[in-house]
Design a protein around this nucleic acid. Structure first.
Lengths: 200, 200
DNA sequence: GTCTATAATTAGATAGAC
DNA sequence: GTCTATCTAATTATAGAC
């Protein structure tokens, strides 16, 4: 016997998960609330009941995705121990690539919104990307005089693009090159490739 | 006095250019044919007259964008002369970055469609990406034993992502880092950064 | 060739029964 | 809390006047 509170949480959970998948696959506009409801095994009315609007549902989905990044990656990096700062940096990059492979939604969300100047992009930057970028900058500073400060934006987007594009465009990659990038081996190869590139 | 043929070509030209901009900014679904017609200073009816459907207009826009890549980049690379293959490769990469900066539509088109398994993605791969990738592979082979064959897909997506993301997400980059990536100086900095990274 | 009017779908949001 | 029915607005594609 489920309590109302539990039922509420369950349904919200299912809807948010379905929304993450639909938004990532189809983009914000093409992902209809009816499609999301169908994936969540409910009906469209419940979406506006639990979330006031499609925009609010989108923000809940983004919160979830970036929350995962923070906990998963933060945890893994905290567990890392290395005396050699270069070895540490390489493994940190590998972990980021692994996360990108497991969660291509994050990159898709970013490019889907990053091209516009609309409110969703602004919200995404202010609430989730700014903290992420600050962490990246601190991370870069830990290497001492390794990277010049003015190069940090370039380094950030190079890292993000190089790490994630192959997974975000997985169907295209499969058809174009024959390689399935989400394979365990392909992920590790890509992680090693990017890590060695950025920290030779 | 314009002939009908000229008028026809003119209108088609305006519509295709408007479509490129709208598809790149808004994505395929969010870019309505009315919005495109408005940007082209015509009406929606003319779009279905000149192009049978929105899909066909999209293909015409993609043809135009990839045509530009082929002519512009092909021309610039043909003009390059260098005895040192590494110096040649570096400058080739710089030219690709410059093109990505001037034409962020190309990358946006690719990620917009590359995530799905739909017909537009398949058409894009088969008609435009395959030739591009083949050129990249030949290019890589010119370096002799530099890059292993199994790494080529990884190298391709690393190059594409590292070169283009910062320009494709320009509004986000501005808000996040304060840097306007389409500045002449920022473009050159990025080109040098990526070129040195991939060919140290 | 151009443009307006309109048909047929589909979207997000709301109302009310249960 | 859930689900169905419905409202309003926007979409693509079509028809027909000029």
């Amino acid at each position: 016997m489920k309590s109302r509170a539990q039922q509420r949480a369950d349904t919200r959970e299912r809807i948010v998960e379905a929304a993450i998948g639909a938004f990532a696959e189809l983009g914000f506009n093409a992902a209809s609330t009816r499609e999301i409801a169908s994936r969540a095994n409910t009906n469209q009315g419940l979406i506006t009941y639990h979330f006031r609007s499609k925009d609010e549902l989108w923000r809940a989905a983004a919160d979830r995705v970036f929350g995962r990044l923070q906990t998963t990656l933060g945890e893994r990096l905290a567990r890392l121990e290395s005396d050699d700062p270069r070895a540490f940096a390489r493994e940190a990059i590998r972990e980021y690539v692994r996360f990108s492979a497991a969660h291509p939604e994050l990159f898709r969300l970013m490019v889907d919104e990053g091209k516009t100047s609309e409110s969703r992009m602004q919200w995404l930057v202010d609430t989730h990307l700014k903290p992420l970028y600050t962490g990246f900058v601190r991370f870069g500073a830990a290497f001492g005089p390794g990277v010049e400060e003015s190069l940090l934006p370039h380094a950030y987007y190079v890292l993000a693009g190089a790490s994630s594009l192959i997974f975000a465009a997985a169907p295209e990659c499969r058809r174009l090159t024959g390689l399935s990038p989400e394979t365990r081996q392909a992920v590790e190869t890509h992680a090693e490739f990017v890590a060695r590139l950025l920290v030779p």
